[in-house]
Design a protein around this nucleic acid. Structure first.
Lengths: 334, 334
DNA sequence: TTGTACGCGTTATCAA
DNA sequence: TTGATAACGCGTACAA
């Protein structure tokens, strides 16, 4: 293994000079810089991360805590995880994966042992049990998802309320008056922000709507579908916040003799990738999960640099505005 | 921060004794062990991972290299990543996430800087560009996927050929004679092991079959479906190796007046989670991605312990036998 | 602009 | 069964 001392010897300078050339924390004469860089190249020197971490008292590692059984969320989780990793690398950080089967202790462990400099929490619930640990240890963190008590924390999430409102607006603009919102049965929250945003905007625009749930499979969606038309036969548009219900819904519309978008418009709240897979390709309101990961990394790194300067880190709460992408599944009401 | 020296002082022993109590690498008298453990508890000592890594010359971190744009593979990737992490934790290791946008250099970086003790490569291709780096640096690794040249490497993968054969056997046992295999257009390999395994067993059992591809959306699958029945009107069973084509296929069967499984049997090569979502619930031949991750971790750790003992690590190539789960989509041919 | 020297918190060797 | 103590390789305050 080639060490800093080896490079120093080879270049005829002290090892601290080599260190400073590499870190750029000191002004170095052009001549010695050249010599050092050449020695680095000739010897094939690679700084030892372990020694650096010990001496610098930071590991340049961020811990990413992912939920273990994210059920249907899994593709999204991977997308966030990779975007976090890519973003972190651009700032010279690496990412350690922590699964939630360690529970809140996972956070405690990486913070206490100094494995990670900070923590990114995915899939943060309203009352997340990992948050007390952050407060107790003073661990720097960025959360993806908005907990109830955000004091002292930086968080980022999609602006679900805006997404709901955008669905209402788009369909209202197209002249629809009777809309069905198809959610997921596993969403037990009465104050699902998407629904709230949708409802408020729908009321402002004078729309009638029903909110129904599906389990995300064919049978359940068929039942939901039947009930919607039993209750509201004049329904001409659907908003779907349930990836598994999309395929069944489209098929039910088809088999019931309704053409999309001529007879019924469909707006999906799902990743674009999913929307492109269906026939017709679906109009969506969607947020970027990559942005979510990137923003979380940047929030956390801002906190870390603040702390390293002896400043107080500033709490940031950011809601990312989603995008309406009009594809083939929405059209003016006839 | 509480250090080993603090604990030693508090317990009235030397710091090396504390270290040995914690690592268990030395026999310690009951009395001192008790004193040390009490001091650890009273002071709330947590060993510093960075110092440990430097002194022990191992980081107790494994690097997991995931493909960046895994397209449809993404849910699977997350499942493997979490199972790798959980398994690694059980052996006292953590997992660092490396995305393939760093390319082969990512492997070089973590190995050369000593960030990780070993590497797990996901989604390994037949001729993977990361493999030469492993060889060049002598980095210990475990691969998920089987490359062509496996010399000096430990690998694990599903036994796809066995999976294909099991599909053929199951349908042959049920009396089917004409079978359609629906694959994915993105699979350009002529020697797709699943197809090979299926074909060979099908021939042994005297089955007729066609192999067709779909892009995994409704339109493409509809075209494939039409062609299959144009070519082979007597087809009574399908094997699907294309998650996106499953929903469309079931709907096409339904709308064309064929009931599953009475008129047509369907065997899916997909995760059980996906199979359970469809109506009817699908008979599958599937392998466990969790096992894949766990086995890779164990292979890598065996190599690492061998090396630390000065022994030569043994190469292991393991194919995991998949499982046939009979659900509601297959029945005897009528 | 450069060098010296100490510290980071463990592990592990060598003695006792 | 236990204790000193020398690495481990780098960062940085202090000195020159």
């Amino acid at each position: 293994m080639v060490t800093l001392a080896d490079v120093a010897r080879h270049a005829g300078v002290s090892s601290s000079t080599v260190s400073y050339v590499l870190s750029g924390k000191r002004t170095i004469s052009e001549e010695t810089r050249r010599r050092v860089e050449q020695a680095v190249a000739e010897l094939g020197y690679h700084p030892n991360a372990r020694a650096r971490a010990l001496a610098a008292r930071r590991s340049y590692i961020l811990a990413l805590v992912v939920p273990l059984r994210a059920d249907s969320h899994e593709p999204i989780m991977m997308e966030i995880a990779t975007s976090v990793t890519v973003a972190a690398r651009q700032y010279g950080y690496d990412v350690l994966l922590i699964t939630n089967d360690e529970g809140p202790e996972g956070v405690r462990r990486v913070a206490l042992t100094g494995l990670a400099d900070g923590v990114i929490l995915m899939d943060v619930g309203l009352d997340d049990e990992r948050i007390p640990v952050l407060r107790e240890l003073g661990t720097q963190a960025a959360l993806i998802g908005l907990p109830d008590d955000r004091a002292g924390l930086s968080c980022v999430d999609h602006d679900f309320a805006a997404a709901g409102a955008m669905c209402a607006d788009h369909l209202a603009d197209l002249g629809h008056r009777e809309i069905a919102f198809v959610g997921h049965t596993s969403d037990t929250r009465h104050d699902n922000p998407t629904v709230v945003g949708f409802r408020e905007r729908a009321q402002e625009r004078g729309l009638r709507f029903v909110h129904r749930a599906s389990e995300g499979n064919y049978d359940s969606t068929a039942g939901t579908f039947a009930r919607i038309f039993a209750d509201r036969p004049a329904t001409t548009a659907f908003v779907v916040q349930n990836d598994g219900a999309i395929g069944p819904l489209l098929n039910l519309l088809r088999t019931s003799g309704r053409t999309v978008p001529e007879d019924a418009s469909v707006v999906a709240l799902c990743p674009d990738r999913v929307a492109e897979q269906h026939t017709p390709r679906l109009t969506t309101v969607s947020g970027s999960y990559q942005d979510l990961g990137r923003v979380a990394v940047e929030q956390l790194l801002r906190r870390l640099t603040a702390v390293s300067r002896g400043e107080e880190p500033t709490d940031e709460q950011l809601l990312l505005t989603p995008t309406l992408t009009v594809r083939e599944s929405t059209a003016p009401r006839v």
